[in-house]
Simulated scan of single mutants.
Amino acid sequence: MTYTGDVRAGGPTDLRVLDEIEIRKAAVGSTDNNAYLLTCRSDRSQVLVDAADEPDRLLELVREGSSQLDLVVTTHRHADHHRALESLVAVTGASSAAGADDAAAVAEATDVPVARRLHDGDVLHVGHLALHVIALRGHTPGSIALAYVEPGGRTHLFTGDSLFPGGVGRTTSPEAFDQLYGDVVARVFDRFDDHTWVYPGHGADTTLGAERPHLDEWRARGW
């Protein structure tokens, strides 16, 4: 079955199998949040990107990959991205990570200590996988993305609510938009090629090649 990234809350998981990694995508909650389970094919270690909602569904997702969950990464502090974090950590014993400037807010909201506060340029190692942390400030102060680069191949970018098909994430002021747009251009579009696959926090996937021609349009409209 070909991976499309087209998922809906209450629906099945979509699965992408690469040489080193399995990527599972599921949608949960009333706002169709995407949760991504990354499984190392060598030792079955796993990381979940955003324990957004529906803990039972996310536990089912974890079990689709393997019997263990090593780490949950929260892309940013907004509640719809961590409603299931407390339950999931309690059941699985996974540790928690979040962007440094959002970590205190995530810990306070969930009662889950953030074991690792992530900064731009950090690298998370899960099994044999290396996940590169990219700070994309503006949607929230500590918003992050994760980049996985296939050996000799395509980059896979998990962007939370900082980059979607059609634009950057919502911001609350012109200054925040300027910061987010600047980070997305400098740290994503200037760094990665058009084949880079983008997995956002809600909705359909995209590629940098599909979005790059519209950068000037985003800058001009201010959102």
Results as ranks from 00 to 15, higher is better:
Asp120Gln: 10
Asp19Leu: 11
Arg221Trp: 08
Val47Ala: 04
His156Asp: 10
Glu54Asn: 09
Asn34Met: 06
Glu217Ala: 15
Gly203Arg: 01
Cys40Asp: 05
Tyr3Thr: 12
Leu38Glu: 11
Gly167Gln: 01
Leu157Gly: 04
Tyr199Ala: 10
Gly138His: 09
Leu163Trp: 09
Val184Gln: 06
Ala35Ile: 10
Thr110Gln: 07
Arg24Glu: 14
Ala26Trp: 13
Gly65Pro: 03
Ala135Gly: 10
Gly182Asn: 01
Lys25Gln: 13
Thr92Arg: 04
His214Ile: 15
Asp80Val: 06
Ser45Glu: 09
Ala210Gly: 12
Val133Cys: 05
Trp223Tyr: 11
Asn34Gly: 06
Asn34Val: 01
Gly160Ala: 09
Val188Tyr: 00
Arg137Glu: 05
Gln179Glu: 14
Ala186Tyr: 04
Ser96Leu: 05
Ala103Gln: 02
Leu48Cys: 11
Val114Phe: 04
Leu69Tyr: 00
Arg187Gly: 10
Arg77Leu: 13
Ala210Thr: 11
Gly203Cys: 07
Val188His: 03
Ile144Glu: 05
Glu108Asn: 15
Asp183Met: 07
Val133Asp: 04
Leu69Cys: 02
Ala35Arg: 02
Glu20Lys: 08
Pro151Met: 09
Gly127Asn: 07
Ala97Gln: 01
Asp101Arg: 11
Gly166Cys: 07
Val168His: 05
Arg212Ala: 05
Glu54His: 06
Gly167Cys: 01
Arg221His: 08
Gly93Asn: 00
Pro12Gln: 06
Leu215Asn: 13
Asp161Val: 07
His82Thr: 02
Thr74Ser: 00
Tyr181Ala: 11
Ala105Glu: 00
Pro213Ile: 02
Leu146Pro: 01
Glu20Met: 14
Ser45Trp: 10
Asp80Glu: 09
Gly138Lys: 08
Val62His: 11
Pro200Tyr: 00
Val123Glu: 11
Arg191Val: 12
Gly127Asp: 09
Thr196Ser: 06
Asp178Ala: 08
Gly65Thr: 15
Asp56Leu: 11
Asp102Lys: 07
Arg154Glu: 12
Ala52His: 06
Gly209Lys: 01
Val47Lys: 05
His125Thr: 09
Gly127Leu: 05
Gly160Ile: 05
His202Lys: 03
Ser45Ile: 08
Ala115Gly: 03
Leu69Trp: 00
Val89His: 01
Glu86Phe: 02
Leu118Ile: 02
Leu215Val: 13
Leu157Tyr: 08
His78Met: 07
Val133Leu: 10
Thr207Tyr: 13
Thr31Gly: 12
Gln46Cys: 07
Val188Met: 01
Asp193Trp: 05
Val62Lys: 08
Lys25Ala: 14
Ala27Phe: 03
His132Leu: 12
Met1Thr: 10
Trp197Ile: 14
Glu108Phe: 14
Arg116Ser: 06
Asp120Asn: 12
Pro55Trp: 00
Gly65Lys: 11
Ala115His: 04
Asp178Ile: 05
Arg154Asp: 15
Ala135Leu: 11
Gly153Phe: 12
Cys40Ser: 08
Pro213Ala: 04
Tyr36Met: 14
Val149His: 13
Met1Glu: 09
Leu208Lys: 03
Phe158Ser: 10
